[in-house]
């Protein structure tokens, strides 16, 4: 795998909802092993871009290439099996299931046993189930959640739920991980810890990470490359230093602060 080759290529993505253009001609290349941030004010269209990558929305125009393959319009579950995993802005765990079960869900697409294997159960199924449980516990241990494995996911504190969600995404063995505002609802200290955590899993699992963030400061510390969008249009790209000084970015964020005030 060449470090410089492109894993994900977004080409002229446009998303229209009725008359409203949520994203306009968004293009971007992400290379293997990169950690890229996408920032922008609320409602700028960041999540819409993620939804187009993962197949939840079919772009009105443009293409999504993953490892050179056109995945535009594929259903989400197929895209997930190709190696793109995601988390959600408002955590979407299966709240009535345990943390471990949440992780095991992600192993399910790789189960080779049929339903009848599970019903009998055949040795193959028993073996697979045991393998899944072991791997699930390992994974939870790797993200520091082994103590919480058998707790109901909905009962865990917010920060831990976020980690379970990331663990669940990791269990699909992704090549590319999309994180949608992982630090949302966290205080600065928690956000800082989370960013350290993200760096760590990137090392451990050799991931490419594409990260959405609303608060600029959070990504500044960890993403070498940052893209900024506003009103669905890409307005700047560069290193954190360049972004901080970029007049359009300042304008976009100032505008938002003016609105908030």
């Amino acid at each position: 795998m060449v470090q410089d080759s492109v894993i994900l290529s977004l080409q002229n993505l446009t998303m229209r909802f009725g008359g409203l253009v949520a994203v306009r001609e968004f293009s971007m290349d992400i290379r293997y092993g990169e950690l890229v941030g996408l920032i922008g004010p609320n409602g700028a269209g960041k999540t819409t871009i993620f939804n187009m990558i993962t197949g939840h929305y079919v772009p009105s125009e443009g293409r999504v290439l993953f490892e050179g393959r056109d995945i535009t319009g594929l259903p989400p579950w197929k895209i997930a099996r190709l190696g793109i995993a995601r988390t959600f802005q408002n955590i979407r765990l299966c709240r009535e299931m345990t943390a471990l079960e949440n992780v095991l869900i992600s192993f399910h697409p790789r189960v080779r046993s049929t339903v009848f294997d599970a019903l009998l159960p055949t040795p193959r199924y028993v073996r697979e189930e045991r393998w899944m449980r072991e791997r699930g516990l390992e994974l939870l241990a790797a993200v520091g959640l082994e103590r919480w494995a058998h707790f109901r996911a909905g009962a865990l504190p917010y920060g831990l739920q976020r980690r379970v969600e990331i663990a669940r995404a990791l269990a699909t063995q992704p090549k590319l991980l999309l994180l949608d505002e992982p630090a949302a609802g966290m205080n600065p200290q928690e956000a800082q810890d989370l960013m350290g955590f993200i760096l760590k899993i990137r090392e451990t699992f050799g991931l490419t990470i594409f990260l959405i963030e609303h608060v600029m400061q959070v990504v500044m510390g960890i993403c070498p490359r940052i893209r900024v969008i506003d009103f669905g249009v890409s307005i700047a790209e560069g290193t954190p230093e360049e972004i901080k000084r970029h007049p359009k970015v300042i304008e976009a964020y100032l505008g938002e602060e003016a609105l908030r005030a």
Binding site: P76, W77, A80, F88, S106, H108, A171
Partner: peptide, 19 residues
């Protein structure tokens, strides 16, 4: 587990690769 995941959050289940 996949069935229960669909009940709890169909979209999340689908995003984890479940048909």
């Amino acid at each position: 587990r996949a069935l229960r995941a669909i009940r709890e959050d169909e979209l999340a289940a689908e995003s984890m690769g479940i048909n």
